[in-house]
């Protein structure tokens, strides 16, 4: 075989690219899993913001039936996001109404692909994907496999967020179909403050750092304190 490096897209998360040979492999699918409040949506937005900054196209699919204005209201707290990007470099697409009326996996996949063909993004976010699993008829695992394959065929890096349920390490059914698994978690410090962590559990084709790394999440976004545990 001819020797070739993988193309990588910068994550936009300070410190994170150093953990994974410079960025996410392009194209690939990434699962960002974590419990409530661990920062899944923030990380996904920061990833899209980095693309917008670089002149790339991004799509943010929400499954929560959340109108753009609500998302923008929360997102306006973040210094890394520019309002002007929405509707231009970042397309915000609410899948909620579609999912209410369409529970067939094939229809959902077709709908997502229509939007991707229209906007031709290099970065895609589906947040949270686990909601789709609660709504579809048929095999969720087959749907996830199809989705992951189709997303890669579009030549993009796709970040899928997944809710981790109590007692669960990560959404197992999702972890099989993705190329990368990033786990976000929290714990309570002895002083009673809640600390946040980021850990790369799996990344195909990459020598990645292992173990939990402390993260700061503020109005500036995510910053990984590599090596701090």
């Amino acid at each position: 075989m001819a020797a070739q490096d993988l193309i990588r897209l910068k994550s936009g998360i300070p410190g994170m690219d150093d953990m994974m040979e410079g960025g996410f492999p392009f194209p690939s699918t990434i699962l960002v899993a974590g419990g409530a409040g661990t920062g899944k949506t923030s990380l996904a937005l920061q990833f899209l913001a980095k693309g917008a900054q670089e002149g790339e196209q991004g799509i943010f699919f929400t499954t929560l039936s959340e109108p753009t204005q609500w998302m923008l209201r929360f997102a306006s707290r973040y210094g890394f996001l520019k309002r002007d990007w929405f509707g231009r470099q970042i397309k915000y697409i609410d899948l909620g109404p579609f999912l209410m009326d369409n529970t067939q996996p094939s229809r959902i996949l077709e709908h997502i692909e229509e939007q991707i063909a229209e906007h031709m993004p290099q970065r895609i976010v589906i947040d949270p994907l686990t909601v789709v699993g609660e709504m579809i008829q048929g095999s969720y695992r087959t749907f996830l496999y199809d989705l992951a394959t189709r997303l890669k065929n579009w030549q993009a890096v796709s970040v899928l967020t997944g809710e981790v349920l109590p007692g669960q390490a990560y959404p197992v059914e999702l972890s099989y179909v993705v190329d990368t698994l990033v786990l976000l978690s929290t714990d309570l410090s002895p002083e009673g403050t809640r600390r946040k962590y980021l850990e790369i559990l799996k990344m195909r084709g990459t020598n990645h750092a292992t173990g939990k790394n402390l993260v700061d999440l503020s109005a500036k976004g995510f910053v990984v304190q590599v090596g701090l545990r």
Partner: peptide
């Protein structure tokens, strides 16, 4: 490196 399906859709659309 890409299947017909997605390419044909892309070309058809644009």
């Amino acid at each position: 490196d890409r299947p017909n399906r997605s390419l044909a859709r892309l070309f058809d659309r644009h």
